[in-house]
């Protein structure tokens, strides 16, 4: 724990600690990565180690109409859901962080709650209600459901971005003659833009991965990728699922890298400006 106390015993203890942590990290990532070699297998069933290399499963993945539709559906659902979540999440964050509203903490907890609550509970509540108004199986139905559960992600990232700088900037803009809308446009939004983008990406990723609401609220024509994967998992185990999984994994990691880069750029910018942004 401390460099000043580097007696042999404690040195061994800290080496053991590092080893333990490395093993945990391996446990954390390796299982998922096992799919990668399997997806390039030439076998017709999942076998380890694969007896040969081929891209046939990627070819059949690419040729599959089911996957085409599912990916298209995931985009048609994920993008609008993330956009709604972003617009509403930004509004909620502005109100809760900057506004003088009663029950601030309770309201913040309410906005975050859909992320915490098990989706199965929401799903069996939403299904009958949406069935009554004919939203089950439609795009708007699942889009709105995903918007509700991803809004907390935007709310959290944008709230953090707002808390990162003092409201003095907005007050300054107002003394200089900018009304509420122009203050948001010229000052607040540029300041929180990285948080908004990261929140949007998180929301998109979440919607792309979400299974349970999709299971209840989509139909075979609006079926998303996780739902398709799930259905296939339950009756066949061909490596085409592995190939699809690797493609999705790649897409997720690419989106997260984008989010990380946005965040890092924002941090660098803020670090340079911390002097001006104090108090």
């Amino acid at each position: 724990m401390n460099r000043t106390a580097a007696t042999p015993f404690w040195r061994i203890a800290s080496a053991g600690l590092v080893l333990f942590a490395v093993l945990v990290l391996v446990y954390l990532v390796l299982p998922t990565l096992v799919i990668v070699p399997l997806s390039f297998s030439s076998d017709t069933f999942l076998k380890f180690p694969p007896s040969g290399f081929s891209t046939r499963w990627y070819e059949s993945f690419a040729a599959s109409a089911d996957y085409h539709f599912a990916i298209l559906n995931s985009l048609k659902i994920g993008v609008p859901a993330a956009l709604v979540a972003t617009a509403f999440g930004v509004m909620a964050a502005l109100a809760v962080v900057r506004g003088a509203i009663p029950f601030r903490r309770t309201l913040a907890a309410l906005v975050i709650a859909p992320l915490i609550l098990p989706q199965i509970v929401l799903a069996i509540g939403l299904f009958p209600l949406m069935a009554k108004v004919g939203l089950v199986g439609t795009y708007p139905g699942i889009v709105l459901a995903h918007a509700v559960v991803t809004m907390p992600l935007v709310f959290i990232t944008v709230s953090a971005a707002l808390r990162n700088y003092a409201p003095t900037f907005e007050l300054a803009a107002m003394t200089l003659g900018a009304g509420p809308w122009r203050t948001f446009l010229y000052v607040t939004f540029p300041m929180i833009r990285p948080g908004v983008i990261v929140g949007f990406i998180f929301a998109l990723t979440f919607s792309f991965d979400e299974l349970i609401l999709a299971m209840f609220l989509t139909s075979p024509t609006t079926r998303t990728v996780p739902r398709l994967l799930w259905e296939q998992l339950n009756f066949q185990m061909t490596p085409v699922i592995a190939a699809a999984t690797v493609v999705l994994l790649g897409a997720t990691i690419a989106l997260l890298c984008l989010a990380a880069l946005t965040g890092a750029r924002a941090r660098r910018r803020l670090a340079g400006e911390a002097k001006g942004a104090g108090a």
Partner: peptide, 10 residues
Amino acid sequence: VFQNYALFPH
């Protein structure tokens, strides 16, 4: 004029 100037950093 504000205490920490509140110059818009962007």
